[in-house]
Design a protein around this nucleic acid. Structure first.
Length: 933
RNA sequence: AGGCGCGUAGCUCAGUGGUAGAGCACUACCUUGACACGGUAGGGGUCGACAGUUCAAUCCUGUCCGCGCCUACCA
């Protein structure tokens, strides 16, 4: 056991413990009806089955795992409900791409065979992401894993649809929707991403039809960014008060390409007189504003597009062209007719399909919609009255803004992969029967038996919107649903606040009558080191597995930009991660714990998490530090069974470290509960490294040599306890490392078989001892002051120096006298520090520093470089003078004394006293130096 | 156009109404029996600019400059 290697190797350790936890059922939620433990539930945001683990998943998995492990250790019955999402469009696209490589399309297979094929693919590779989450250490209850298209979840989807339909919240309507001609489906507003692009504002003239005017032709010039849509124009609108066009009110225009007369209408809503020419062509079938205008004026809606995005017969001679081509051709044709009136550059928003980047066209279509406003109001109320809390709270406004301006949700998709809509069209009477039955026998209206199911499937987010309760057996009132719903926390990226979180709240409230979760915890987006969003196109993605297992930069680059030449991929990658320049040939195997600690260290307020490999390295080093601290401790603590709660020690350093352990445990718990994992991990990091390793273990080295037998025994016991406690505290963040070490360390009676089930430390583990904390501060300050002098004068490491201390504070003296052995050990002084009276002369050749209310004098006769020393003293003196002046000014301000709180005044006065002592000491030292010369 | 947020050490970011913090990077010394993935000590910032509130502002208020993101139908 003592021959642990010097360097911690996570690759060996991590898989072993994950297998152990799984075999022992450590992650399983308790379903025993007699289990009275409080419950903590997180529903894992189900990743797409198409997905493989990216940094965003790793972040999500880590944060949730920390929350879940912490609560599990606190004795909660925890359920982390895992699963995957069928991801309608994304998955269908993947399989269609495969088919295309075989020279086939989904239509060659037919719907049934195609869906079968997707299932096959899902069975094959849909589990990959789940496997990858295990590598990260995620402690979800994998036995309960769900898929949004499982039979029970599909039943929940049908039930939800039917209920919403019955409640008149789902309806079918013909209106303008977003159409992706590549995916061949309607999209919701959220699935359309607007992208700014440089376009042209193009002007052309419509000829005014005017029987009275004879030969003098009049024209009306319109401005548009999409000239091709003029083929569907059914009006031109001007502002009713626009003086330029008063004479045209009621007149008609001649369409240059199709046989149609176009009315000139007046509309104050659509038209802004100051923009363009003040005349707006109206295309109700291809523009949302124009659609609304058309409804106001009863205009004809002429669709000019086929579903594949080419022009239909309404496009006349332009039929068959793509939109882009038609745009050019229409412009040419207008020019040929002499109707072109110029164009200028114009920034415009191009709507693109979130999945395939194709330009989305507004199209008239019959689709299913969810009426949102009645659902939004309760969801707003739930957040306003605190039934669900959003953390960080800055997102509340965004949430409210969206819900208060919400549009109805188009939920039907013209895909094959997904939940087919449970609506049946009657061939006889056209009535639509919406039913829970998989295959209703007759039309509910006319009783006809010729029924066919609506071919559309539901938006993938419809089923995810039911996730927190559909996974627990809803609509049945199962024991799981009773026990685990509402869930506790919903943790996810802010990018799906609308897509998912808001919809879960709306659907949950409506269908179950309760909020689906008590808190919404939102994290930021992982971006590369230069702040760019990670994307496959940019070749700047990081694969968490490469970081965990290690990979050469060549391999990483190859994977991150497949198909591109290696040198190009490598260059892009290195540019995205400048810190890799100083990292050799590749990533070492950092291990999951290092990645987890790194991901936890970012504040949840950070919208962009700029992942730096160098930072991971820092946490890798930390893991090694912890490992070596235990390696050092083991021989000392073997056979020491720590007690719980620990016996109260007598030695200062033991009292201190116990107190710190308790304080840190409390802080960590408080921070984790507030979803400040960055604070919690930082507190643990600094406790373990700066206090436990840098001071406590070093104190122990001294005590194991110089201490009495009783002191040594007490120290061994305390060390055993603190190591065991620190490992428990670390476990949520670094589960593998902590488990590996905890299993080697002596443990109190009654501990469970693994740290994953052991109690998270509390104040019980270390009673507060503020005296000890204060005293250690003085002790370490004195030691550091003396060491600074040694370092400043470049003393040999082994050189012993005379050390003198002086203070006017009897308490400080008493304390330091009690610890003189430690002072001697740390400062390497010639024997114990010597106490000199306040008035006794300063020994020649001594160098001074001030630590709190103690003056530290290190005898350096013969070793001082007077010039250097003078400069050093001078620098310190100047700083002291500056500080004193500042405090003096403040304390002589009557308003400060009157208004500032008493403790602030007191602290300022004390600070001033200390500084004055310091100044006196420095002046004396300077004087001495001058005398010496 | 509206909303949200950001601007703090060379880099990435915490933070607080009472004389500024971390990690990495940097400097010097140290291959000392846990750890060189280490130790000891150190350097470095007028906390974006300008005004205001206050005894006191990096923090609160306002304006401005610069930068992100989200929402939105300006042709």
């Amino acid at each position: 056991m003592h021959e642990l290697p010097k360097v911690y190797d996570p690759t060996d350790v991590e898989p072993r413990w994950y297998a152990y936890w799984t075999a022992q059922g450590v992650f399983a939620a308790g379903s025993d009806p007699n289990d009275t433990r409080p419950v903590y539930v997180i529903a894992l945001p189900p990743p797409n089955v198409t997905g493989s683990l990216h940094m965003g998943h790793a972040l999500m998995g880590t944060l949730e795992d920390v929350l879940v492990r912490h609560k599990r250790m606190q004795g909660y019955n925890t359920l982390w409900q895992p699963g995957t999402d069928h991801a309608g469009i994304a998955t269908q696209t993947v399989v269609e791409r495969q088919l295309r490589q075989e020279g086939k399309s989904r239509h060659d297979l037919g719907r049934e065979a195609f869906v079968e094929r997707v299932w096959q693919w899902k069975e094959q590779s849909g589990n990959r992401i789940v496997e990858q989450m295990r590598v990260l250490g995620c402690s979800a209850d994998w036995d309960r894993v769900k898929f949004t298209m499982d039979p029970d979840l599909s039943r929940a989807v049908r039930e939800a649809f039917v209920r919403l339909y019955e409640d008149k919240l789902i309806y079918r309507a013909t209106r303008l929707i977003n159409w992706c001609s590549d995916c061949r489906t309607a999209l919701s507003d959220l699935e359309v991403e607007n992208e700014e692009a440089d376009g042209k504002l193009y002007e052309f003239a419509y000829e005014v039809i005017d029987e009275n005017s004879g030969s003098a032709k009049m024209e009306l010039i319109v401005a548009t960014t999409r000239p091709e849509t003029m083929l569907g124009d059914t009006a031109v609108a001007v502002h009713p008060e626009d003086p330029r066009y008063l004479h045209l009110h009621g007149k008609k225009l001649k369409h240059p390409f199709v046989e149609r007369e176009i009315p000139i209408i007046t509309d104050a809503v659509l038209v802004d007189m100051k923009f363009g020419t003040g005349a707006v062509k109206v295309t109700p079938a291809h523009d949302f504003n124009d659609f609304a205008t058309g409804k106001r004026h009863g205009l004809e809606e002429i669709s000019i597009l086929n579903l594949d995005g080419t022009l239909n017969p309404a496009g006349g001679r332009f039929e068959g062209l793509t939109v882009a081509k038609a745009r050019k051709e229409v412009k040419l044709a207008l020019a040929a007719l002499g109707l072109e009136r110029g164009e200028k550059a114009h920034k415009l928003q191009v709507p693109r399909c979130q999945r395939c980047r194709t330009v989305v066209e507004p199209m008239i279509s019959t689709q299913w919609f969810v009426k949102m406003q009645p659902l939004a109001e309760p969801a707003l109320a739930a957040v306003r009255d605190g039934r669900t809390q959003i953390v960080p709270a800055e997102w509340v406004k965004t949430y409210e803004h969206w819900l208060t301006n919400i549009q109805d949700w188009c939920i039907s998709r013209q895909l094959w992969w997904g939940h087919q809509i449970p609506a049946f069209h009657c061939d006889a009477c056209q009535h639509i029967t919406v039913t829970r039955e998989a295959a209703p026998s007759a039309c509910e209206s006319c009783g006809g038996t010729g029924l066919h199911q609506d071919p559309d499937v539901l938006d993938t987010w419809f089923s995810s919107g039911l996730w927190p309760f559909s996974t627990l057996g809803w609509p049945d009132n199962t024991p799981d649903l009773c026990r685990f719903y509402p869930t506790s926390d919903l943790e996810t990226g802010y990018d799906i606040l609308f897509f998912w979180v808001a919809r879960m709240l709306m659907l949950g409230l409506h269908l179950t009558g309760e909020v689906p979760f008590r808190r919404v915890l939102l994290h930021g987006m992982v971006v590369d080191e230069t702040g760019e969003k990670m994307s496959k196109v940019k070749g700047n993605t990081l694969d968490p597995l490469d970081l965990i297992h290690g990979a050469s930069f060549d391999e990483v680059a190859k994977r991150t930009l497949p198909g591109a030449p290696l040198s190009e991929a490598l260059q892009k990658f290195k540019k995205a991660y400048p810190s890799t320049a100083q990292m050799g040939q590749g990533f070492p195997a950092y291990g999951a714990d290092s990645i987890r600690l790194t991901l936890c260290s970012y504040s949840p307020q950070a919208k962009r998490i700029s992942l730096s490999p160098k930072r991971i390295e820092g946490y890798r080093n930390f893991c090694n530090k912890v490992y070596n601290a235990v390696r050092f401790s083991l021989p000392h603590i073997e056979g020491e069974l720590p007690q719980q709660p620990p016996t109260r020690p007598t030695h200062l350093v033991n009292r201190w470290i116990l107190s710190r352990l308790g304080t840190v445990a409390e802080q960590a718990t408080r921070s984790i509960d507030a979803f400040r994992l960055d604070e919690a991990s930082s507190v643990l990091y600094h406790f373990i490294w700066d206090e436990l390793c840098d001071w406590y273990l070093e104190f122990n080295k001294a005590l194991f040599v110089t201490g009495t037998e009783a002191e040594q025994l007490e120290t061994r016991q305390t060390l055993a306890h603190v190591i065991e406690g620190a490992l428990r505290a670390l476990h949520p963040f670094a589960p593998f490392l902590s488990e590996e070490l905890w299993q080697r360390v002596p443990r109190p009676e009654g501990r469970p078989h693994c740290v994953a089930l052991a109690p998270f430390p509390t104040r019980e583990d270390g009673p507060l001892d503020s005296d000890a904390e204060r005293e250690i501060t003085l002790l370490t300050t004195v030691i550091t002051a003396a060491r600074t002098i040694r370092s400043d004068h470049e003393l040999e490491k082994s050189a012993k120096v005379p050390l003198q201390l002086r203070t006017q504070d009897p308490e400080s003296r008493h304390l330091l006298e009690a610890q003189s052995a430690l002072v001697e050990w740390f400062v390497r002084s010639e024997g114990a520090p010597e106490w000199v009276g306040p008035e006794s002369p300063r020994p020649a050749g001594a160098v001074t520093a001030v630590a709190g209310n103690v003056e530290v004098l290190v005898g350096l006769r013969g070793l001082i470089d007077p010039a250097k020393e003078e400069a050093r003293l001078d620098r310190k003196l100047k700083k002291a003078e500056r500080d004193i002046a500042g405090l003096d000014a403040r304390l002589s301000n009557a308003n400060f004394l009157k208004n500032a709180p008493a403790d602030v005044v007191e602290a300022t006065q004390a600070e001033l006293e200390t500084l004055k002592t310091q100044r006196a000491s420095l002046i004396a030292a300077v004087k001495l130096l001058v005398e010496l010369n």
